[in-house]
Amino acid sequence: MARPREFDEADALDRAMQVFWTKGYEGTGISDLLEAMQIGRGSLYKAFGDKKGLFLAALKQYEKNCIEPGLQFLNDRNIPDGAQRIQMLLETVVAVVESDNDRRGCFLCNTAVDQAPHDPEISKTCQDMMGKMVQGFYGALKDTTRHKNLGEEALQKKAMGLNIAYNGLRIMVKAGYAPEDVRKTINTILAEFDLLT
């Protein structure tokens, strides 16, 4: 009979995700992970295989904790105007700086730049997650007054452009731009995509 896990895997993954998010893959050592996760080396390897396995699991945890709520928000019909949903999502990028001085950027964006070029599996995971974000923007665009009559191809192009702009905002935050500069950029993006409400 298999022994039950002696730790809360979701909680441990959350802790590992925070370490990877803050220090990056290369900057994170096994000792950092063990200390943060409060588990032994054997438990880590038994549950996740190795450091890369844990990193991929942490990336999926980020998708669950951060990407999926964003997608739900973009498709929330309780806010009927998709342009308003897009604007509110973009504004969350600067809100985390103003409220918590959180300048880690986006764990997905960081991974796409840092690790995806060197690892096909991580690259595919990043592309899949970004593809979901594109579809989230696509769904919101379909619910905007100015874009509802556009064809699917045009909407997909705009959705891809919005995802690129969103990632750019996350990078601006990590690079240390002042909140007011990020807000000006958000307004520029909204104007360029004809989404000012």
Rank of each mutant, 00 (worst) to 15 (best):
M1W: 07
E6K: 14
F7L: 10
D8P: 07
A12E: 08
D14Q: 13
A16R: 09
M17N: 11
M17P: 02
Q18M: 15
V19K: 10
Y25I: 14
T28R: 07
G29Y: 10
D32T: 14
L33N: 15
G40N: 12
G42C: 02
L44M: 15
Y45G: 07
K46I: 12
K46D: 06
A47R: 03
G49Q: 01
K51G: 10
F55T: 06
F55N: 03
A57D: 02
A58N: 03
A58V: 08
E63W: 03
K64N: 10
C66N: 10
C66K: 12
I67V: 15
L71D: 02
L71H: 04
L74R: 08
R77S: 11
P80C: 10
A83N: 03
I86D: 07
A95K: 13
E98Q: 14
N101F: 06
D102L: 07
F107C: 08
C109L: 12
C109N: 08
A112V: 00
Q115G: 04
A116I: 03
A116W: 06
A116Y: 00
P117Q: 10
E121K: 06
S123E: 14
D128S: 08
G131D: 13
Q135T: 04
F137W: 05
F137Y: 07
Y138G: 06
D143Y: 04
T145E: 11
T145D: 15
K148G: 00
N149H: 13
E152Y: 08
E152T: 14
K158T: 08
G161V: 07
Y166E: 04
R170M: 03
I171A: 10
K174F: 01
A175Q: 07
A178P: 00
P179N: 07
V182H: 00
K184G: 03
T185N: 02
N187I: 05
L196A: 05
